[in-house]
Amino acid sequence: MNVLQINGLTKSYGKIRAVNGLTMSLESGQVMGLLGPNGSGKTTTLGIILGILHSDSGSYEWFGGQYGQAEARRHIGAILETPNFYPYLDADDNLDIYRRIKELPKQNFDQILDRVGLLERRKSKFHTYSLGMKQRLAVAATLIGDPDVLIFDEPTNGLDPNGIADMRNIIQGIANEGKTVLMASHILDEVEKICSHVTILQKGHLLASGPVGHILTDNRFVIVDSEDNHKLKRVFSSVAGVVNISDKDNMLALEVEASIGATRVNQIASEAGIWLCHLEERKNTLEDEFLEITHKHTNNQ
C-alpha cells in the first residue's frame, strides 16, 4: 500500500532552492532512509509533508488521500529537528497534550515511557532533562496511539555515544515491528544499519532511490599499494573486470566485478613483476556509493 506519494515538490528560500522537483514514494512496511549532506533539503521535505512549511509547487498525499491533511498527521508519529515540548510540564503532562491533539482516549504512558527508559523521570519537568532524555521523550511522543507510520529527523544529532546507541536500538526495534519508517539522516552508517530502502538527496534533487541492497552495487573494492603505483595503475587499467581505479590515501582503490577477487589481483601484480605491500578487499559501502553518486551528479551538471 502506498503510504506517501510526493510529486514534483519544490521549495525555495529566497534564491536558494531547498527542494527541487522532488518525486518519491513510501510504501507500507518500508524503512526508508532519507540521506543527504546538511542542507540537502531533508528537513524541508519533512517540514512540508508534515504541514509545517508551505511548498512553492508540487503536491503530496498521505494514505492515498483517505484522510484530510491534519487527520492524516494524527496517524503518524513524527519528530522534526529538535524535541519540542512544554518546558514547565513533566513527561506525562507533555505526552497527554499530544494525546489530546491526536483525539485519543485518556491512557497511561507506562509502556511508552518504559520503552524509551524514562519511567523513573516521568514526573520531572522537561527543562530538567538532558538532550538524550529530551530526544527519548520525543520518540515516546511518536509512539502515542501506536501509529503505523513514524518519521524521525536526524534522531541521533547531538547525542553522546551511549545516547546514539540507545536511540538506534529504539528505532531498530520500531522498524523490526513492521512499521513504516521515514528517517532523515546525514549519517550513512545509521541508514545502512537501520533502513531497508534509501533515497539520496543533494541540493534538493533526488539522486537515487531504492532498496539499500540495490543502491549498493555488487562491485567490490580491492585496495592495493606497492612501490610503483604508476606502473600498477597501468597494469590494471587494461584488465577486464576492473571497472574503475582511483587514488585512495596514497594507495589505489580498484573497483572490481564479482569475478575478480584479492587472489586474482595479487596474481596479476606478481605476473607484472610488482610486489604488493598492501592488499585489502572490501565491499562497497553506502559511503562510497554516496560519494560516487553525488560526484557523478556534480560532474553531469
Binding site: L50, G51, I52, G68, Q69, A70, E71, R73, R74, I76, A78, L80, T82, N84, F85, Y86, P87, Y98, I101, K102, E103, A141
Partner: peptide, 13 residues
C-alpha cells in the same frame, strides 16, 4: 518553545 510546530505535526490544523 517550538511547541506550535509539534502541535501542528501531531495533527492539529
Amino acid at each position: 518553545n517550538r511547541t506550535l510546530r509539534q502541535n501542528i505535526l501531531t495533527g492539529l490544523n
